[in-house]
Write a protein that binds this DNA or RNA. Structure first.
Length: 919
RNA sequence: GGGCGAAUAGCUCAGCUGGUUAGAGCGCCUGCCUUACACGCAGGAUGUCGGGGGUUCGAAUCCCUCUUCGCCCACCA
């Protein structure tokens, strides 16, 4: 085996990645087979995760690293557990984001997209995407992602574009997609409308301007209104007061004069106005405020648009005579300053005060969003939300951590229609054609060249669909939908888990669930796992633009993918953020780096000792030949397996929905990582491997037993760690004796609890560990120099479970504790000895000549005092009737056991103190 | 303005439905190049579990309240 001959002293992550990743690909390790799913012709449970598609031109950041590591751990775990595991990778065309990048590029050439024209511009974007696109997926490979790259999808693929059209047309035909004329969020920089979710709130301190509108024909009388956006005054068409407001009752029906322009507008009564707030009078600008729009509709008011799409002051739709010459063409914020100046000069400005409010910004470019009246396509969401809401309420879909479930439910209950049209060129063009002859609007799965009703000339809608309108179909569009019989769709839908960040719960997760029910008639997955955000040590979200980011590829280069993965998984509690220090990668990633190195060294040593000769299968070993250490480590492995299983699973609900008892179980990857780590490091390496050194060296039958157990246990440990550390585990696993070519640990069986804990003597090795620890402690306490050997005598008590067998462990204890150990000396040593009780047997360390007796007495007395205090508390508790009556029997019993043990320990300690130190 | 979450060792965090003397990693202290590993080994120190009140035989864990952070949602001009 070439692997075994080549065993570098230090592990080289880059070399492992270069060796194994291509091999995995070549061997099809990550490729799922539809026919093996039990929903097709096979027998395996499918386990599917669809990767939240990163932006096609995106660059990997730590958030992706975290997100994909979590998914990979789950997929690798299930693949080993025997599922037909499929992880579908892919990218999103990211309409606004990608178009923005290319627009910036051509801006450097002094051009806009309009200079290029639609077709050339789209080609230009396609060029850019084909150059840089998908590099993020390549970067994921260096993290070890075991995605099925043969199924890589892209939202603009012809197949997925077909799905998008199908979805749109179906909704259109059901009347769930409609054309709406209303105030939407408009980004004056991106020149497109945005959905509610894409217009993000940011708290800002603005100003509230109070302005007087003179009442027509009543000199001296005026109505005072307040506004944060005085420039929108130019679009005012009314002043609204509450119908019950006495102050203004007589004004309703009269008109007031808009300052600056002198236009007369009516005073109307509408419940929208809160008489308690401000002056109780509100200016109404229907084209530039969603609430005012509603008011305008109720009162059939005109709706002049006083800004251009770019956000400069213009007499746009229905606004003739409204924008003064001096303001035209000015940016809205500049115009605001100018307006205030003009108002001040005219005496209409009453006062200006600071005002805290939330302002919406474009989620892609952070420009302040302008509410603007326009025609857009909307999806009627309420009917779609109903089953999606019910799914979570009934436990068909669970959302972890639990608290996000409430957020989801609240959003779903108050869902608003979704603006899906974008005034962009990059994306799926809306499949709607307008007939120039008869005016008919047609939505169509196929491109139309003439009107289906009159045969007249048609023109396709200019807009494209929101990016999220393609990604909400992702769990089934990537599997072949709308072809209902697509093998992948049948084999792998519904998928299992969706792993993503809470930020996109509404953008994506909620919509994916709605789409799943609407188009597939069933849930898209049974679990949503929302992991935390990657933050720096100041708890600021990591972002390239903030300069506090960590490039995962740097980390991979420095410490390896395994180290990155382990660190990330171990550091991520359910529902907590991952904090890393971008200024100190060494420290941030030390948990993974240290453990990766440790694991490599364990492997190197253990496998070198074991050698390459064939090793007996554990099943062929006579159980009576197993040492106490063997039994112990086998039981510990079982326990580690059980802990890992409990932390990760269950992989899926038992039936259609989650039972209450399992609803919150599993997905605790940090516990899984910790369980595996502590087993490998603190038990396997620190104790078992140490304990086998002499046995291996001695050779003979016992060496064979030690080899067999070592190999078995290490194999199990590697398997447990494979999901989180795929490279090192593969490299070490390949070097196990008896490995044949073509196997990969990635497809080896997940270990199972073999019941060793129930085997006789499974915990007896604890006695050896205690003995060693005690001696080490004494060495350290008394500064016994490393070179000198301590004498230890074990005095077994009749009936002690260790009494018969300490002899066989004497050498081992001596070696681990650097002592000479003898067994069976009949009597305790009396005064100058340190004796410790181990299950009624005594461990006696003669202290004469080694130890300062006075100091030892002091130490023992304080130890005794502490023990007595604790014991007192314990006995008081046991004497408490209420405790004995009310606490569970097992707890009481446990406390009694403990009291017995402590009492014995106390007595032993007390007699020792008496003997050593006198009264 | 509503809703939710967090506060545990110097740092980052575990501690799941209340029940051993509250744990881990990193850092720190002491001693070690012990024939796999100094990215290591052995030993060790450090916590009025944010403050206050309550429920309970028993509270880091449950309830109330206060303080400080964070997140989500929201049409008060």
């Amino acid at each position: 085996m070439p692997d075994r001959d080549n065993f570098p002293a230090t592990h080289d992550p880059a070399a492992l990645a270069a060796e194994y990743y291509p091999r995995w690909l070549a061997d099809g390790v990550f490729t799922a087979h539809a026919e093996r799913s039990d929903r097709s012709s096979g027998t395996r449970d499918p386990f599917t995760i669809v990767m939240p598609p990163p932006n096609v031109t995106g660059v990997l950041h730590m958030g992706h690293g975290l997100n994909n590591t979590v998914q990979d751990v789950l997929v690798r775990w299930r693949r080993m557990a025997g599922d037909e595991a499929l992880w579908v990778p892919g990218t999103d065309h990211a309409g606004i984001a990608t178009q923005n990048i290319v627009e910036k590029q051509i801006a450097r050439e002094g051009l806009t997209r309009f200079d290029l024209g639609r077709e050339p511009f789209v080609r230009r974007v396609e060029d850019w995407v084909s150059q840089t696109g998908g590099q993020i997926l390549q970067q994921l490979k260096s993290l070890g992602a075991s995605a099925d790259w043969t199924r890589t999808a892209y939202t603009l693929d012809p197949e997925l574009s077909r799905a998008v059209r199908e979805a749109f047309v179906r909704l259109y035909e059901k009347g769930l997609v409609y054309r709406g004329h209303r105030v939407i969020h408009w980004c004056p920089r991106c020149l497109t409308s945005l959905s509610d979710e894409e217009a993000e709130f940011a708290d800002e301190t603005g100003k509230l301007y109070h302005v007087r509108y003179a009442v027509s024909g009543e000199p001296g009388r005026a109505v005072e209104v307040a506004t944060t956006r005085p420039e929108t005054m130019l679009g005012d068409v009314a002043v609204a007061v509450n119908p019950g407001d006495e102050r203004y009752r007589d004004l309703v029906g009269k008109t007031v004069v808009l300052p600056i322009t002198g236009i007369e507008i009516p005073v109307i009564a509408d419940d929208y106005t809160d008489p308690e707030f401000g002056t109780g009078a509100v200016k109404i600008t229907p084209a530039h405020d969603p609430n005012d729009f509603e008011v305008g509709q109720r009162h059939a008011l005109p709706m002049p648009v006083i800004m251009s799409p770019e956000g400069t002051m213009q007499e746009w739709a229905d606004a003739v005579g409204r924008v003064p010459e001096s303001l035209r063409g000015l940016d809205r914020f500049e115009a605001r300053e100018r307006m205030v100046e003009m108002l001040r000069e005219s005496g209409a400005l009453v006062k200006v005060e600071p005002h805290e409010h939330a302002v919406r910004h474009c989620y892609r470019c952070d420009t302040v969003v302008e509410p603007r009246l326009s025609d857009q396509w909307f999806v009627r969401m309420e009917p779609l939300a109903r089953p999606a809401l019910e799914a979570v309420r009934s436990g068909e879909i669970r959302i972890l951590p639990e608290r996000w479930e409430g957020v989801y439910v609240h959003w779903m209950e108050n869902i608003r229609d979704w603006n899906i049209s974008r005034q962009l060129w990059w994306g799926h063009r809306i499949p709607v054609w307008y007939c120039l002859a008869c005016g008919k609007t047609s939505a169509s799965r196929e491109d139309l060249d003439k009107c289906p009703s009159c045969g007249g000339e048609v023109r396709q809608d200019e807009d494209v669909l929101d990016t999220w309108f393609s990604s909400w179909l992702w769990p089934f569009s990537t599997l072949g939908w709308p072809d209902e019989d697509a093998p992948d769709l049948r084999a792998f839908y519904p998928t299992d888990v969706l792993v993503t960040a809470p930020e996109i719960l509404f953008f994506w997760v909620a919509r994916v669930i709605m789409a799943g029910y609407e188009f597939m008639g069933q849930k898209p997955f049974h679990s949503v796992f929302l992991h935390g955000t990657v933050r720096d040590t100041n708890h600021v979200r990591m972002q390239k633009s903030l300069g506090n980011g960590i490039d995962p590829l740097d980390v991979v280069e420095l410490f390896g993918a395994d180290a990155l993965r382990f660190t990330v998984v171990a550091g991520l509690g359910v529902g907590t953020d991952l904090t890393l220090d971008p200024t100190d990668l060494e420290r941030s990633f030390s948990p993974g780096r240290n453990f990766a190195t440790k694991l490599w060294n364990i492997g190197r040593f253990l496998l070198t000792n074991v050698g390459s000769d064939p090793v007996s299968a554990l099943a062929d070993i006579d159980r009576s030949s197993l040492t106490r250490a063997d039994r112990w480590i086998l039981a510990r492995l079982d326990s580690a397996i059980a802990e890992c299983d409990a932390a990760l699973g269950p992989a899926r609900p038992d039936g259609d929905r989650w039972k209450e008892s399992q609803l919150r179980q599993g997905m605790r990857l940090n516990e899984y990582a910790e369980a595996a780590r502590s087993f490998v490091w603190n038990e396997l390496a620190d104790w078992y491997v140490e304990s086998t050194k002499a046995r291996m060296q001695a050779g003979g039958a016992d060496a064979e037993v030690a080899r067999a157990v070592s190999v078995h246990v290490f194999d199990g440990a590697l398997r447990l760690l494979q999901p989180v550390m795929p490279f090192i585990t593969e490299a070490l696993w390949q070097r196990l004796p008896g490995r044949s070519d073509g196997e990969s640990i990635a497809t080896a069986a997940w270990p199972r609890d073999a019941g060793w804990a129930a085997e006789a003597g499974a915990t007896e090795f604890e006695g050896v560990r205690d003995a060693v620890s005690v001696v080490r402690q004494i060495r350290s306490d008394y500064n016994i120099p490393p070179g000198s050997v301590v004498e230890v005598r074990i005095v077994p008590a009749p009936g002690s479970k260790f009494s018969a067998t300490y002899e066989s462990e004497a050498d081992l204890i001596g070696r681990l504790a650097r002592a000479t150990v003898t067994v069976g000396v009949a009597e305790a040593e009396g005064a100058a000895a340190h004796a410790i009780l181990l299950d009624r047997s005594q461990l006696v360390i003669p202290l004469a000549g080694v130890v300062d007796v006075a100091r030892e007495c002091e130490r023992l007395r304080s130890e005794l005092g502490e023990l007595e205090q604790q014991l007192g508390l314990l006995q008081a508790r046991l004497a408490n009737e209420n405790f004995v009556k009310r606490a569970p029997a097992a707890v009481v019993e446990g406390e009694r056991e403990k009291a017995k043990e402590w009492t014995a320990r106390r007595d032993a300690l007390a007699s020792k103190v008496a003997a050593l130190c006198g009264a």
